[in-house]
């Protein structure tokens, strides 16, 4: 309950602030966001796009942690958690791809440019797709859990190669990558003004809470389905 209330309040605040706060050339008040040359109003996407992209990776790593636990303890619930995290990760990944593509259309002129970061999110989509096609290909439940757990661990190991290595090797258009004079930090490092930074991190927290809430819901429904199947089996 406390989780849902906090989530509701935080997400509302972030939405209002992220969309509603006016931009200004030289900010005087705490609610005025500075104008970033070249981005202007389009800079607002950072409050929503970056947290979804971030969470699609976090969901993936959560899935990996539960996969490792599954392989150690062979508890079907861990497999349920792992696949629930992957399912949410896929949703967030699609959202990040779509918001990013729309943003790219208006900022770079086309929906898709094979920028290093676009390539990495595309690969993440492919991994999720492969994970779910592997799951659907195996009939035996225990085998399916084991194989998909192993695959998600292998795939997770290649994620750091993508998210961190590739955008560093090749310069890209994406804000925060090697070609950007303000960027080139470990993940994303912008010259954000303090109030932008507050909204950004609040949004990150809100999206993480949203993920936790949805994750709990999915695990609960999954558990109920498992129990029902057990009852129906003679």
């Amino acid at each position: 309950m406390a989780l849902r209330v906090t989530l509701g309040i935080l997400l509302t605040l972030v939405l209002c602030a992220g969309i509603g706060f006016p931009l200004s050339q030289n900010p005087q008040h705490w609610y005025e966001l500075p104008v970033i040359p070249g981005l202007e109003e389009k800079a607002r996407l950072i409050f929503f796009h970056v947290p979804t992209a971030w969470l699609s990776v976090v969901a993936f790593l959560t899935g990996m942690v539960f996969s490792i636990r599954y392989l150690r303890k062979r508890d079907p619930l861990d497999d349920l958690r792992s696949s629930a995290a992957a399912g949410l990760g896929l949703t967030y990944c699609i959202l990040a791809t779509l918001t990013g593509a729309i943003w790219a259309k208006f900022n770079w002129g086309s929906f898709w440019n094979w920028d290093p970061r676009e390539t990495s999110i595309f690969v993440l989509l492919l991994i999720y797709g492969a994970y779910f096609s592997l799951r659907s290909a195996v009939e035996n439940q225990e085998k399916r859990s084991t194989l998909s757990a192993a695959y998600s661990i292998i795939a997770a190991i290649t994620v750091p190669f993508f998210i961190f290595v590739l955008p560093r090797i090749t310069s890209g258009l994406h804000p925060g990558s090697k070609g950007d004079p303000d960027g080139a930090g470990p993940v994303l490092q912008f010259t954000m003004s303090p109030n932008m930074r507050v909204i950004f991190f609040a949004s990150l927290a809100a999206f993480t809470l949203l993920f936790i809430w949805m994750f709990q819901l999915r695990v609960r429904t999954g558990k109920l389905e498992m129990e029902r199947e057990l009852q129906q089996a003679p």
Partner: peptide
């Protein structure tokens, strides 16, 4: 399908 994402980097 399974190999491509792993091999892409």
């Amino acid at each position: 399908v399974l190999s491509f994402p792993i091999l892409l980097p």
